[in-house]
Design a protein around this nucleic acid. Structure first.
Lengths: 268, 268
DNA sequence: GAGTGGTCTAGACCACAGA
DNA sequence: CTGTGGTCTAGACCACTCG
């Protein structure tokens, strides 16, 4: 057979190997969480060199299907299906003050997964960009509520935190939040809006911007993703009827892990 | 000085080179659209080998700052700032039936850039996923409206199509669209909803889902992006008061090129 | 045909994990 | 200490572009 003039894809070797890996994982040849053979032995199995195998692994890892630990092996990712984040529903819904709030309000997790929030509260100087959005001086401190969300198998021991799926930081001006219930640790994101309303700063509109970028320094580590994965950065502003921005929230998600969903009505 | 225990980043060589490149481009050392020195000579300049320089170029190209043409050189991307797509505004606004519709309705382009839509209309069998959403049989044909949008410098000659920035395909069931004005080429996306309304299928709600993924076969070519760039896939469903989905639209955007913006009100 | 980007190889060294 | 992933090199070949 002469070389096909319009071959489906003049795939380079490392792409063909990547495709084999991808297919093997999707077909369940390796279980979720399983360890792959070492790159060298994988290369022998697939009839290629370690260099090429390594590059193929990099490609598939960048898609989120594999995670690698230097010196420790290559593993199939624990979460292969995407999580869904429904946007307006997020805050319009009732605020359930249960421990498991995040499961219902923040995200839709595939069956068998449980969300585990790790919140922390402090006050500090916001990044310049956030100060600008909030309309406060960059030197002035604001209330910072940070939540790292993990997802773990429902039957995992409580000691296993699971996989990091979201990193969210909320900034509220201190003149609004100082000394109020907003400094309490155990609030859900919906509760924040309730308390803002109680304090006379009820948010009436939300603006959210979505960007895809490479993970910043340290983010890849915190989110346990490969450095050449991508993250989604959501910047959310809540403003009141008088157009004051009373809350800015920045959420970072591993891009391969999520589907964002938005819904709105069309006025007649 | 002993090796810093918590060095900012124990950057690998190719990352340092990538960082140099990135900085050089951001600082304007190379003009937008300019051709870079060949990888070999770049490697000499930066004190490294071609292999490493090539890998660094791959990294920066994957971020959208560079585009490479096999055999033809490496160039600084024409568009370095992101375009903004404002979501609900998209269809709520008036429908301007001008040639330049896209500039106003579809996207916000940086100054000096003009959007150029290349529409086409046909009817064919939709992808299975779309058929499912539309509630039609996969074998039945639907109306397909495809638009490729390019952005060009305002002072570019009309022969230069510019940079591809968006690939959008809209599917409408033939029993609604057959033989109607919806088959006309020169409609803007806002006009489609107007005509649907005229035909007794006024959309009242839109659901949009956002995913980030690797470009599919051929997409990288059409969008003129590097294969290890990422794309944003928007799947939009428009449904009527009777909950019929009358339009499904799939939009593919180079992820590094766009900011998506959503805005909604919080009911009291 | 010369120049260029893309790929592949074979081997080397390192840093880290884990027994 | 051994195994593993991550990186780097030097050189090679190919396919493509462009004059």
């Amino acid at each position: 057979m002469p070389p096909q003039p319009s071959a489906p894809s003049a795939a380079a070797e490392f792409r063909r190997v990547a495709h084999k890996l991808r297919t093997a994982i999707r077909d369940g040849a390796y279980e979720s969480g399983a360890r792959l053979p070492a790159a060298a032995s994988l290369a022998r199995d697939l009839g290629t060199t370690r260099s090429t195998a390594e590059r193929a692994i990099r490609v598939v890892a960048a898609e989120g299907l594999l995670t690698t630990r230097k010196g420790g092996g290559t593993y199939v990712s624990r979460i292969l299906d995407r999580l869904t984040r429904r946007a307006p529903a997020l805050l319009v819904e009732q605020s359930a003050p249960e421990a498991d709030t995040y499961r219902a309000v923040e995200a839709e997790l595939p069956a068998g997964l449980i969300g585990r929030p790790f919140p922390s509260v402090r006050s500090e100087q916001p990044p310049g960009e956030v100060a600008l959005l909030l309309g406060v001086k960059e030197q002035s401190e604001v209330l910072v509520r940070e939540t790292r969300m993990y997802a773990a198998a429902a039957d995992a021991p409580p000691t296993d935190p699971g996989t990091p799926v979201q990193l969210s930081v909320t900034y509220i001006p201190l003149d609004i939040a100082g000394g109020t219930a907003l400094e309490r640790l155990e609030l859900g994101p919906a509760d924040v809006h309730g308390h803002l309303a109680d304090l006379g700063h009820r948010p009436t509109a939300i603006t959210e911007s979505v960007q895809v970028r490479a993970p910043a320094d340290g983010e890849a580590e915190v989110l346990a993703i490969d450095v050449d994965n991508r993250v989604i950065e959501l910047t959310q502003r809540s403003s009141t009827a008088t157009d004051r921005v009373v809350e800015v929230s920045i959420t970072v998600l591993p891009a391969s892990l999520w589907t964002l969903s938005y819904r709105w009505a069309i006025p007649s």
